[in-house]
Amino acid sequence: MQDILTTYIPRVAVQPAFELIKANNVHLKIVNERVTRHGDYRKLPDGSHQITVNANLNPYRFLITLVHEIAHLVAFHKYGRLIKPHGKEWKYTFQTLMLPFLRPEIFPNSLLPLLAIHFKNPKATSDTDTRLALALKQFDPPNDKNYIFEIPPGGEFRLYNGKVFKRGNKRVKRYECVEVSTGRMYLFNPNAEVEYLQ
């Protein structure tokens, strides 16, 4: 398992991440990209714990996602299954588990201040933290995607499922976008990655 982790997370983080996996009896599955999530945790019918993480994540996002999912397991075990999945118990657990990894030997100096801010009150996904998401994206392999906020008003974009939208105005936090074929209005997170149709 440690050899496998070396492929996906920063080398200095391998041993402590392996200890977390071992201590919580996690079956880690590294899977092909899923567009809607970076990872997930589930308790299987036989009582074992399975965590899946997308193989295409950069090392820093992979590590954050792995610890995020282990935090679900630990929080449910400690506080019971009735807690909210991303409630205060999970946030506290995630902060506690992530703290030993927030070091310059593991994360680049450009990410550490943003991670410190993010972990004061972690969100359900780091993608909703625009500044952190942009900073993490710098470590992704180049792709042809744009964020919604980069698309000009009235510009059209395509989702992974082939649907085409036209970007509208920003509401409080999200952008109103009209599906071209149906005229239906949808709200998009500013840093959702899409294909800009120029």
Rank of each mutant, 00 (worst) to 15 (best):
P152L: 07
D127H: 06
L187T: 10
R37W: 01
N169F: 07
I106Q: 03
F101A: 00
Y41S: 11
I30P: 07
Q198S: 15
T182W: 04
R37F: 01
E19C: 10
K91W: 12
Y186E: 05
V35Q: 12
I106G: 01
R103V: 14
A133V: 03
A124P: 06
P190G: 14
V53D: 01
W90P: 00
Y8T: 08
K120L: 11
D40T: 09
K170C: 15
K145S: 05
K22T: 08
K123V: 12
L73S: 10
D46G: 06
V31P: 14
P142C: 09
V67N: 01
L97E: 07
P16E: 13
N143D: 15
P153S: 13
N161P: 03
V178A: 04
P122Y: 02
F94W: 10
Y196C: 09
P153R: 09
F101V: 03
I151R: 00
T65D: 02
K88S: 07
I4F: 07
D129K: 02
V180I: 15
R103E: 11
D127Q: 09
Q138R: 10
A23M: 05
V35R: 13
T7S: 13
N24H: 14
L5E: 01
R103G: 06
E19K: 14
P122I: 00
D127R: 12
T7R: 06
K43F: 10
L20E: 07
P141T: 08
R174T: 11
Q15C: 10
V164C: 09
V31N: 14
Y60T: 01
V26S: 04
K84V: 02
Y41K: 12
Y60H: 06
K137Q: 05
I83G: 03
V35C: 08
N25V: 12
R61M: 02
F119P: 12
D3I: 14
R34Q: 15
T93D: 07
V14T: 11
N109Q: 12
Q50P: 02
R103F: 13
K84Q: 10
K166S: 14
K43W: 09
T125F: 11
V178H: 05
D40N: 15
N58Y: 06
E69D: 11
A133C: 07
K29D: 11
E105G: 13
E19G: 07
C177M: 09
D144H: 09
I83D: 02
L132R: 04
C177N: 03
R167V: 09
K123M: 14
M1N: 08
F165T: 04
N169G: 11
I70W: 00
G168D: 09
M1Y: 06
P153Q: 08
N191K: 13
L197C: 15
P100D: 12
Y186V: 07
N32P: 03
F165P: 00
E193F: 04
E89R: 10
P122M: 03
R81F: 05
P113K: 09
I51G: 00
F107K: 00
S48P: 02
P16H: 15
V74G: 00
V53M: 02
T65F: 00
